[in-house]
Design a protein around this nucleic acid. Structure first.
Length: 586
DNA sequence: GGCCGATGCGCG
DNA sequence: AAAGCGCGCATCGGCC
C-alpha cells in the first residue's frame, strides 16, 4: 500500500486553527450493481462523477490522494473488504455516526431537515455470525447505502454543521468519531495477539487441571466439595442463586443476596471457599476454555468494537466480552515473535478532563504530575489519598451519602469551578434538560415515562408516593447528566488520542515482509498498528524495531489530544506506558 | 424450546 | 438499596 506524504496531517488538519476544510471529499454509494463516486469541492459542488464495478473500489481508493476524505454511509459495510484487499483508508466521514451526533447536538441550531431523515437512525451494519450465514435475516440492515441518499444526507450534515454554534469543536468531534469507525474495523481486522498456550496455562493454574471429559476443573471441584461440606449438603447447588441462598440460610447465614459484598460481612467457614469458588466459576464460564476455542483463532482475538455504542460516546463491544477481559488473563495478550506491545493508559483521565473543561486552575494544579489524588492531598482538601479518590469519584458520580458524600463540601471549597460544572450538569438533568460534552455530543432527551412521572407528581391530587418516585427519578437523571459531561468528554479525549496516534503509526516505515506478522493481515503485517482500546487505555502491536518510535508517538498523540481539546489550558495527561512482550502489568 | 427480566460480576 | 456513573455476558427461572 502506498502512503501519501500528506497522510501525517491526520485529524490535525481539522483542528479549529488549521485549514477548515480538507482538500477533497468523495462521496461513495451504490447504484444498481455498481458503485458511484462523486467528487465534491469545498462548498459541496459536484466536480465529477464516476461509476465503477464494486470490485474496483479498492484500486480507486488506493490511487487517490491520501488527503481525500471518503464519505460513506456506514464504515463496517465498506471497510473490511478494503482492508482484506490490502487498502488502508486515511480519512472518512461516517454518515451514520455523524448523523447521530448532529441530530442530538444542542449546539446545532438549525438542523436543515437532518432530524427528519430517520432512515439514518439505523444501527450499524453488522456482519452476520458464521452460524447465521444461512438465515434469512442475517446481518442488520443499516442506513441507506445508495449514492443519492448519501449525497442528500451529506448535504444536510454540512448545512447543520454550518449552522452550529461552535463549528470548530463539532468538526473535530465528527472527524475523530469517523476515525474511530475506521480504527474499530482495523483493530478487528488486525486482531489482538493472543497466546492460546499461555491462556491454557493460566486457566490450569487458577482453576486446576482441565478434566478430560466434561466435568469441572480440579481446583474448582475441590472448592465446591469444601463449600458443600460446610453447608452440610452434598447436593447443594452453587450456581443457582435462589437455591444457594436457601442453603446459606439453613446454616444460619441470613444474607439477602449471594453477592460478594454481602457475603463478606458474615463470619462462617463456608464464606471464604464460596467466594473463591464463585471467582473461579466466573472465570471458567466467561473466559475459560470454551471462550478460547470460540474467540481466539490463529493467535488473534477479534472482537467487534461498537464506536459510540454507549450514549456518552464511549465504545461498546459485541461478542467475546472484549471490554471485560479479566486482568488475570492479561499475560495471554502476547506479541508475535520479533514484535512487541506498547501498552499505555492515562492515569485518572476523568478528573483531569473535568479540571480542563471547567477551567479549574486549582484542580489542574493538583493534576500536575503522575498522581492527581496525591495532588489533592497536597492541596489540603482531604487528608489521605484514599479519601481523595472516593471524594472525586463521588463528585463525578453524584454520591450523596457515606464517606464520599461527607467529603464533598471540602471538595467544593477547594475546587469550586470543577464542582460547579458537575453540580450544574446534575441540576439541568434533574429538571429534564440536556447537557453536552466539551465537543458537543449531547445527552438524550427525557423519556415519555420520565415526563409522565414528573407530571403525575405535579398534579394537585398527587400522593406522597408519586412525589417520592418523581424525586427519585429526577435524582437518577441528575446523576446521569452529571456523569455524562465528564465521561463523554473523557471519551472524546481518548478518541482524539487514538485518531492522532493512528495517523502517526501509518506514517512510520514498514519492516520487511520476513519480519512481518502475517496474522495481522495485508495492511498491518509489516507496520505498527493499534490492537486494543479500552476507554483510557491502548495497546499497539509493533515490530520490535519500531517500539521506541511507537512509544514516542503514543506520548505525542496524547499531547496533541490535550492541545486539540483544551488548547493552552495547563493540565497534564500523564501516561503509564510500557514496552513489553505481554500486556501483563508488572 | 425460545424469550425475557433479574442477578451477579467482569471492565473502565 | 452498594452509598455513586457507564457497559456486556452467563446463568437461572418463570413464562408462553
Amino acid at each position: 500500500m502506498r502512503l501519501h506524504p500528506r497522510a501525517h496531517r491526520g485529524i490535525g488538519a481539522l483542528s479549529p486553527s488549521a485549514d477548515p476544510l480538507p482538500p477533497a471529499w468523495i462521496v461513495v454509494g451504490r447504484e444498481d450493481a455498481r458503485i458511484v463516486a462523486v467528487r465534491l469541492d469545498a462548498h459541496g459542488g459536484q466536480l465529477s462523477r464516476t461509476s465503477i464495478p464494486s470490485e474496483e473500489l479498492a484500486s480507486l481508493i488506493a490511487d487517490e490522494d491520501a488527503g481525500t476524505r471518503w464519505v460513506w454511509h456506514d464504515t463496517p459495510a465498506w471497510y473490511p473488504q478494503l482492508l482484506a484487499a490490502g487498502v488502508r483508508v486515511a480519512r472518512v466521514h461516517d454518515l451514520r455516526l455523524c448523523h447521530a451526533i448532529l441530530r442530538d447536538s444542542a449546539t446545532v441550531v438549525d438542523d436543515g431537515g437532518l432530524r427528519a431523515a430517520t432512515e439514518w437512525d439505523a444501527a450499524a451494519v453488522v456482519e452476520p455470525a458464521p452460524a447465521a450465514l444461512f438465515e434469512l435475516d442475517a446481518g442488520a440492515a443499516g442506513p441507506p447505502d445508495d449514492i443519492a441518499s448519501a449525497l442528500a444526507e451529506f448535504a444536510r450534515q454540512r448545512a447543520a454543521l454550518d449552522a452550529a454554534d461552535d463549528r470548530g469543536r463539532l468538526r473535530l468531534l465528527l472527524a475523530a468519531e469517523s476515525a474511530g469507525a475506521l480504527i474499530a474495523v482495523e483493530m478487528r481486522t488486525a486482531g489482538l495477539p493472543w497466546d492460546p498456550a499461555e491462556h491454557d496455562r493460566l486457566l490450569s493454574e487458577f482453576l486446576g487441571t482441565r478434566p478430560a471429559a466434561g466435568g469441572m476443573p480440579v481446583r474448582m471441584q475441590q472448592l465446591a466439595d469444601e463449600v458443600r461440606a460446610e453447608l452440610g449438603d452434598p447436593a447443594a447447588s452453587l450456581d443457582s442463586q435462589p437455591k444457594l441462598l436457601r442453603a446459606l440460610h439453613r446454616v444460619g447465614i441470613l444474607a439477602e443476596s449471594t453477592s460478594r459484598w454481602e457475603l463478606v460481612r458474615y463470619e462462617h467457614p463456608v464464606i471464604e471457599p464460596l467466594i473463591q469458588y464463585k471467582r473461579l466459576a466466573r472465570l471458567y464460564a466467561a473466559n475459560g476454555w470454551g471462550w478460547l476455542a470460540e474467540w481466539v483463532h490463529g493467535g488473534r482475538f477479534r472482537p467487534v468494537y461498537v464506536p459510540a455504542g454507549v450514549v456518552t460516546g464511549r465504545w461498546a463491544s459485541s461478542g467475546g466480552g472484549a471490554l471485560q477481559i479479566p486482568r488475570q488473563l492479561r499475560p495471554a495478550v502476547c506479541a508475535d515473535p520479533g514484535w512487541a506491545l506498547v501498552v499505555a493508559d492515562v492515569a485518572q483521565l476523568e478528573p483531569r478532563v473535568l479540571a480542563a473543561m471547567s477551567g479549574d486552575a486549582a484542580l489542574a494544579r493538583a493534576a500536575r504530575g503522575q498522581d492527581l489524588y496525591a495532588g489533592i492531598v497536597d492541596s489540603g482538601a482531604v487528608p489521605t489519598r484514599a479519601e481523595a479518590k472516593v471524594a472525586i469519584l463521588g463528585a463525578m458520580y453524584g454520591a450523596t451519602t457515606g464517606d464520599s458524600g461527607r467529603l464533598l463540601p471540602a471538595l467544593r471549597r477547594t475546587y469550586p469551578r470543577a464542582m460547579a460544572l458537575v453540580d450544574d450538569a446534575a441540576r439541568v438533568g434533574e429538571q429534564g434538560g440536556v447537557v453536552s460534552t466539551w465537543l458537543g455530543r449531547t445527552s438524550p432527551t427525557t423519556s415519555a415515562g420520565w415526563r409522565d412521572t414528573q407530571a403525575a407528581a405535579a398534579e394537585p391530587d398527587a400522593s406522597g408516593a408519586d412525589e417520592a418516585r418523581a424525586r427519585r427519578r429526577a435524582a437518577d437523571r441528575g446523576r446521569f447528566t452529571r456523569n455524562f459531561v465528564v465521561q463523554g468528554t473523557a471519551a472524546e479525549w481518548a478518541l482524539v488520542w487514538l485518531a492522532d496516534l493512528r495517523t502517526r503509526l501509518a506514517a512510520m516505515d514498514p519492516v520487511d515482509e520476513d519480519r512481518g506478522a502475517p496474522a495481522s493481515g495485508p495492511v498491518f503485517s509489516t507496520r505498527p498498528h493499534l490492537a486494543f482500546f479500552l476507554h483510557d487505555e491502548i495497546i499497539v502491536h509493533t515490530p520490535l524495531a519500531r517500539a521506541d518510535e511507537v512509544a514516542e508517538a503514543v506520548r505525542d498523540a496524547a499531547a496533541s489530544a490535550a492541545r486539540l481539546l483544551f488548547g493552552r489550558f495547563p493540565v497534564d495527561f500523564p501516561l503509564d506506558l510500557r514496552i513489553a512482550q505481554t500486556a501483563a502489568k508488572d
